[in-house]
């Protein structure tokens, strides 16, 4: 059973084509991330699902009903905004009650109970009577979340809800979102430009590029087996190195060779190397020149020149190489992703 079905959605603003034929189905209770760089159309797609934006062509179905032409208030959805959009003239509790009041859900007592439960879920019961402006960013964010889940919508839409938080709070909220989703199991569509968020939160990642879906797969699969060069470079900052494949060996531009897993067709290809999968060796392997070293606390990031390509590599903090020196690196054959072209 699916809660959200998008069929061949296109959207143009004037002459600019923002979405070109999106097909997407989200199962009941699934947590799906729309991941992509800014301007890829992911937020537009979310707004189309919410009804805040119309489609040029295509169909939006929520819980089996065609809602393409319905205004937002007639759709069984809830949306959480990047700026939280709390109503400043209402208290926290009134904000959380607002969707219940406007949708005329239950009696006043039932609404009270639901508001209380939602505030308990986000651990904010003690702030129920505060005004939104008296709360910190993280607290406001929780209120927005409580307000989004209180009406138990068919589809929960999250528009980069974590991007205004500082790094520590963001990680806390990620854990909390996972917990809450596991507990109440709302069908969720989550927009983000942050691949870590997409990978850690979702059941399925939908990578968008230039108004189309580049790849959709569970997080592990899309990370380990990106289908396209764009997917591999967007997820996990892969290094792309052109090579010639022949007989189980990849030959780089400068003539160095490295073994690859069998099965790749001979010809020109692009090697996608994850920065964490490159090992520093004392001898053997490939020669690369150290350009820069960046200290990251728990480890080092090295920028290397490999066969004329600049690549980024993560190494333990114990690896100390000076810029200008030569490094020996190796990559396990099964860690090399070979992309056509």
């Amino acid at each position: 059973m699916s809660d959200l079905t998008l069929t061949n959605i296109t959207k143009s603003f004037g002459k600019v084509e923002v979405l070109r034929g999106i097909d997407l189905t989200i199962r009941s209770g699934e947590f799906v991330s729309l991941l992509g760089a800014s301007g890829c159309g992911k937020t537009t797609l979310l707004r189309i699902v919410a009804g805040l934006e119309g489609v040029s062509t295509g169909k939006v179905e929520i819980a089996g009903a065609d809602v393409t032409d319905l205004p937002p208030e007639k759709r069984d959805i809830a949306m959480m905004f990047q700026s939280y959009a709390l109503l400043p003239h209402m208290s926290v509790a009134e904000n959380v009650r607002f969707p219940l009041r406007m949708r005329r859900v239950g009696t006043r007592e039932e609404q009270d109970a639901k508001v209380k439960a939602a505030l308990e879920t986000v651990q904010l019961t003690h702030l129920a009577d505060r005004a939104p402006r008296q709360l910190s960013g993280g607290q406001q964010q929780r209120v927005a979340l409580a307000r989004a889940i209180v009406s138990n919508p068919k589809v929960l839409l999250l528009d980069e809800p974590l991007s205004n938080l500082d790094a520590r709070l963001r990680e806390e909220m990620q854990v909390e979102l996972i917990e809450i989703h596991r507990r109440i199991g709302l069908t969720t569509l989550f927009v983000t430009h942050d691949q870590d968020e997409a990978l850690s939160l979702s059941d399925r990642v939908v990578l968008m590029n230039a108004g189309a879906i580049e790849q959709e797969a569970p997080p592990r699969e899309i990370y380990d087996a990106p289908a396209t060069a764009y997917a591999s470079s967007f997820l996990g900052a892969a290094n792309l190195v052109p090579a010639r494949i022949a007989g189980g060996l990849a030959t780089l531009a400068d003539g160095q060779t490295l073994p690859i897993a069998s099965g790749a067709p001979d010809g020109n290809a692009t090697l996608a190397l994850r920065q964490e999968n490159v090992d520093f060796l004392s001898e053997g392997g490939l020669a690369a020149k150290v350009i820069t070293r960046v200290y990251l606390g728990s480890r080092h990031r090295y920028i290397l020149d490999l066969a004329g390509q600049t690549i980024s590599v993560l190494a333990p903090a114990s690896v100390m190489l000076e810029p200008g020196s030569e490094a020996r690196i190796g990559i396990a054959p099964d860690r090399i992703r070979i992309l056509p072209g």
Partner: peptide, 12 residues
């Protein structure tokens, strides 16, 4: 966004 939020919460 406040108005959009209100719309998604059931306000005409």
């Amino acid at each position: 966004r406040l108005e959009e939020a209100a719309r998604t919460m059931g306000c005409s």
